[in-house]
Design a protein around this nucleic acid. Sequence first.
RNA 1: GCCCGGAUGGUGUAGGGGCCCAUCAUACAACCCUGUCACGGUUGUGACGCGGGUUCAAAUCCCGCUCCGGGCGCCA
Length: 433
Amino acid sequence: MRATLRRMERSYAAELTPGEDVVVKGWVHEVRDLGGIAFVILRDTSGKVQIKLDDSVDEELVERGTSLSRESVVAVEGTVEEEERAPTGIEILPTGLDVLNEAEPELPLDPSGKVDAELPTRLDNRTLDLRKDEVKAIFEIRGEVQDALRKKFRELNATEINTPKIVATATEGGTDLFPISYFEREAFMNQSPQLFKQMMVGSGLERVFEIGPIFRAEEHNTPRHLNEATSIDFESAFVDDDEAMEFCQDVTVSAYERVYEDCQEQLDAIGVDLEVPETPFEYLTYDEAIELANSEGIEHQLEWGDDLTTKAETALGDAIGEHYFVTDWPADAKPFYVMKDDETARAYDMMHPRMELMSGGQREHRVDRLRKEIEAQGLEPEEFEYYLRGFRYGMPPHAGWGLGLERLLATMLDIENVREVVLFPRDRQRLAP
RNA sequence: GCCCGGAUGGUGUAGGGGCCCAUCAUACAACCCUGUCACGGUUGUGACGCGGGUUCAAAUCCCGCUCCGGGCGCCA
């Protein structure tokens, strides 16, 4: 059989035709021994297929088949037969069975889903966890979403870039950074590609995007924060805030459309009835947003200048019930690179009813005003010289935004905790695996 | 950073001073069973996070530690 296995092509469980001789490879999902007849359920990436073991099969093979431990990896050679009593309408009558890798009995979690496992247990055993259809589906969708985003960005003539993740200084004040040792100097893991993508706007590229990791050392402990997250960044020359928001809306909707069209099977596995958001999204100014939030009777009434609290976000989300933008924020609430008109900043956030997804703005492209803003926020312009340099020799007006991939997925798939949509999440207590 | 809550067999749980050498499900082991599809049946295996304290008696109450979950702040 070994020699045969090497030569024969592998067939997938979901793509078998009655009458053919095949070799299937996968995991032992379950063994059901009824006495005179037994069934091995084999699972591969495509689905499951039943292997029949009865007195028409070689006795030694039946013995090997019924003593398999769950989740062992096997190769089974046999004939596909039509059988209406089988779960998928077909089953395999085996002529050979090789155990390629035996799994230890007593699994740390149950991939067949009979008994739930808590998230920490699942994350410690992510490979086993990902054998469950509903978990696997999340990551298939995640891959599909990234593909859809890239396609949409290219339609918008944006060039995909990769900016450094090891940097000498903070992007802005506020968020704590992870310090690392860089030869004899101190360096940091970058919290955002913000400054680099802006520099690229002034290069020959004009319009750029990046889907990459960002690192934040904040010790938050919530279902919507990660210390390593994936940011979808966009920045474009000769674009204003209104146009940039429209792009964000379009990019978001394109991700929904792709999942809706191509991932129905995965959505079923997760149990989500996906609806593509209606466009255009609603626009609220910051003034309107705090007024609406206050009128919804939130506990701590907001005053002008306050950031939207979690309770306010929830109240707004409930009132609006769909994606929306909040524009014209108080100038003091936004970082130095956002363009300000007196008291307000030309900044915008895109919200899902459950949480903030995106933050962006019209950028300040005039180097003298940029210097003043850096100083006004208590930062040293000298530390940003590498950045300001790009503004001294021809920087076009520009706008852009950063959208959180994990939040986009968690809200799209109605998943409570963003950790669920990351293979190996990094949070306050988790550094491995 | 502040504030809550939790930790019981491999996994998920019940139990909140004595009724507990700890419940149920699943798993694992053995046996029975010829159509299962969360197969069924019988028997068995296996646990109170760590350290200290209170008490005649602690899984249960108290203190400290470790780990985990959540809310808030802030953010993507």
